[in-house]
Simulated assay, not measured.
Amino acid sequence: MSARESISYNIRVLRVAKGMSQERLALAADIDRSYIGRIERAKENLTIGALEAIAKALEVSVADLVSQPPEGAPPPPALRAGRKPKAESR
């Protein structure tokens, strides 16, 4: 797995584990949502500034994002599609 693929994998795994959409991560990191998508697909070269912003938004260290995933690690699960249901008003 290349460095770009490792970072992409780690960002997606951490984002999904936190239940964050790409849009929510992009807003928290002050990065364009389509850029997050390209990063997660390993189609974009990530800047150090963006890496730091994503790590901060995910509340992890930059080292967590650049670490090599275990060999044969399964792909991260997808989030449920659609919006979260609104809380009932009282």
Rank of each mutant, 00 (worst) to 15 (best):
E44G: 09
S67K: 15
R24F: 00
V16T: 12
I39H: 00
P76M: 04
R80P: 11
S8A: 15
L65K: 02
N45A: 14
E5C: 01
S67L: 13
R80K: 15
P76G: 10
A57L: 07
R33V: 08
R12Y: 03
Q68T: 15
L65T: 02
A73R: 04
R24T: 13
S21T: 13
G82C: 03
M1A: 10
A17L: 02
A42W: 11
P74I: 14
E23F: 00
R80L: 06
S6D: 09
K84S: 10
G37T: 13
P75N: 13
A26F: 00
L27W: 00
S21R: 00
A29I: 04
Y35G: 02
I31H: 00
S2A: 08
R80Y: 01
K86G: 03
I7M: 06
I36N: 05
A17H: 04
R12K: 10
E88H: 06
L25K: 01
K18G: 05
A53F: 02
E23A: 13
A81Y: 01
N45M: 10
P85L: 03
A53S: 15
S61K: 08
V60R: 07
R12G: 02
S61D: 14
D32Q: 12
E23N: 09
R24M: 10
I36E: 08
I54P: 04
S61Q: 14
D64G: 11
P85I: 02
M20T: 03
Q22W: 01
S6H: 10
V62M: 06
M20A: 06
L65V: 06
M1C: 07
K43E: 15
A28Q: 06
K56F: 08
A26W: 01
A81D: 09
V60T: 12
Y9Q: 07
A73Y: 09
L46H: 03
K56A: 11
A28S: 09
A73L: 07
R90T: 12
G19E: 01
L25D: 02
L25M: 07
M1I: 06
A50Q: 13
L79P: 05
E59K: 12
A78D: 13
A53R: 12
S6R: 09
A55S: 12
R33I: 02
A42Q: 07
M1G: 09
A3I: 11
R80I: 06
I48V: 13
G19S: 07
L27M: 13
I54Y: 07
I31T: 05
P76K: 00
S21V: 05
R38W: 04
P77D: 05
G82I: 09
R83T: 11
G72P: 06
R90G: 02
P77T: 05
M1L: 11
A3T: 09
G82W: 00
Q22C: 01
S61T: 15
E59Y: 08
G19V: 01
E5M: 06
V60N: 10
Q22Y: 01
L79A: 09
I11A: 03
E71R: 12
E88S: 10
E23V: 03
I36H: 03
P85T: 02
V13P: 09
P69T: 09
A55T: 10
E59P: 14
N10P: 05
E52I: 11
S6C: 10
D32H: 11
G37M: 12
M1F: 03
K43H: 12
A26S: 12
A63V: 13
E5P: 00
L46N: 02
A17R: 04
S67H: 15
E23W: 02
E52W: 14
